[in-house]
Design a binder for these strands. Sequence first.
RNA 1: GGGGUGGUAGUUAAGUCGGUUAUAACGCCGGCCUGUCACGCCGGAGGCCGCGGGUUCGAGUCCCGUCCACCCCGCCA
Length: 598
Amino acid sequence: MGEFVSQLKRTHNCGELRKEHIGQTVVLMGWVQNHRDHGKTVMVDLRDRGGLTQLVFDYAISPEALKTAESMRSEFVIAVQGEVASRGEAINPKLATGEIEIKVRKAEILNRSEPVPFAIEDETGVNETSRLKHRVLDLRRFPMQRNIMMRHRISKVMRDYCDGLGFLELETPMLTKSTPEGARDFLVPSRIHPGEFYALPQSPQLFKQLFMVAGYDRYFQIVRCFRDEDLRADRQPEFTQFDMEMSFASQEDIFQVVEGLIRNIWKVVEGVDLPARFPRMTWRQAMDDYGIDKPDTRFGLPLREVSEIVADSDFKVFREVVKGGGIVKGLNVKGGVSMSRSELDELSAFAQQLGAKGMAWVKVNPDGWQSPIAKFLSDGEKQKLAEKLALETGDLAIFIADRHHLANQVLAQIRLQLGRQLKLIDESRWNFLWVVDFPLFEWDDANMRISPAHHPFTSPVIEDAGFLETNPLQVRAQSYDLVLNGNELGSGSVRIHNSELQSKIFDLLGIGEEQQRVKFGFLLDAFRFGAPPHAGIALGLDRITMLLARATSLRDVIAFPKTARGQCLLTSAPSLVDDDQLKELGLRIAHTAKPQAV
RNA sequence: GGGGUGGUAGUUAAGUCGGUUAUAACGCCGGCCUGUCACGCCGGAGGCCGCGGGUUCGAGUCCCGUCCACCCCGCCA
């Protein structure tokens, strides 16, 4: 073994040979995708990340090479030298290299492979458990290679674009300080300081602000972030952000930079030209019309509040909800009368699953309203409802009555469900949207106090600052989200750069002076020595890649992801550690879910 | 923490009303084949039916528990 690697260099990859190469002698190396043994001829499809090329081993060309080929099996690593030849009539239109093949003169098996647990094919029906356990094999599949390589191209555009605008790629610590608020931290015990812990960063937020104070006025970083919360298809415990911050910058400056960045990415990856300026929508309007702060604007079905119209109606549910401070909201499904009773029951069950107590519906038939609640509504009420929702014959109206937050949340999900079900979504569209003017605070039911809607370093809108003490929930923030087709891609804000204002916000959040010093003293200190105004944003690289790759799970764009329960099936992390390691760290395990290892 | 779906050869699935030896396809192994590209033909091996308990004369099938995977809610400044 070794003639090829030591003497013959690979001349091409398996995806690039074409008719114009016919006659050339080439060297290819890669994996055996498939071999078809015909006795005195063997065909092998050779694969590398460039594609597939058919190799022909023929008794008439080289009996030795043919003999080697006979022992080849799937996923053997081989090297061949041979001549590029026309396939004549026998072209394979499914392959980019389908017009040519390699007549092999020399062949060598560089390494053998045991039979693989699943075939390396584009369309795999294989269980995800198996894919994650044998991740190397899964990553060999072309769809995964496309995703991972796309991820590289996106990072590359980010770096090139930012470099071109004078941004510096600067690193921030991974071992840092646990801070209150926000997500649960992943903690790292300190050996030198037994009983004390570092935290892995939830984001480099404070460090990038410190860079601004230090005068590095344009910063970016493609950086890993960690949050110890439960997972979803679009949420991993460690994920990658494109993180960015600018000094002397307004919200508009951030928008301009990000719009340019996104346009470049989409141009390079998708080949599409996005509009020069992305649409904006206030948070208030998003909540009113879509019931959610990340609206999918690719289709209509706007939500309409009808609380006032039904406040005194004979339908007790509506009346009581409005009286109790809740709202009644609805949407008009154009032409929806064709929806069957069982479909409506299903939708209603869906609503209840999300926490609604029920779902009311009205079908507008030519001969009048068909609805379980029609008999409770006066002609005047019907008239006003029809106007508010623009109901016409053939339409279906759906109503939810509940507390403000829940009604919005449920209707937002119903709207999305209907959008999918009725195929109202144009999948070819890329609808970017800036959602602006978020509230600075939101009410935290669990702790019965206000909490930051974005994070506690967000600057209030200047003209609202007077309400900070009197009516904090009414104060708008200089924060913004970038939304794409109903997915939150990123979130940012103009930051506070004044230690008094920062301290005041901490006060309002119930973080006492002592805690401020202990947890954020370094930030408040820094702000005392000439902090420039600054603003920034962080975009989810994983999510951007997922959407561009048309993947439905982050796991398909992360090479080595975690399962829904936070495990890595490849390495079996997390795992128990030796008692000695614990002892060194001054730790003792109080209880485990798994039986203690010996 | 809660709800839902699933777990049967290496892989993907079937398995009826609880019934005697658990099927199929692909893959794997052996043989044959000079033009295939999901090659073909002949033959063969391969099972802790996720795990534990229960009901029963008898459990892949019914019941209870548990583990794992996926999706959703809560959670994710």
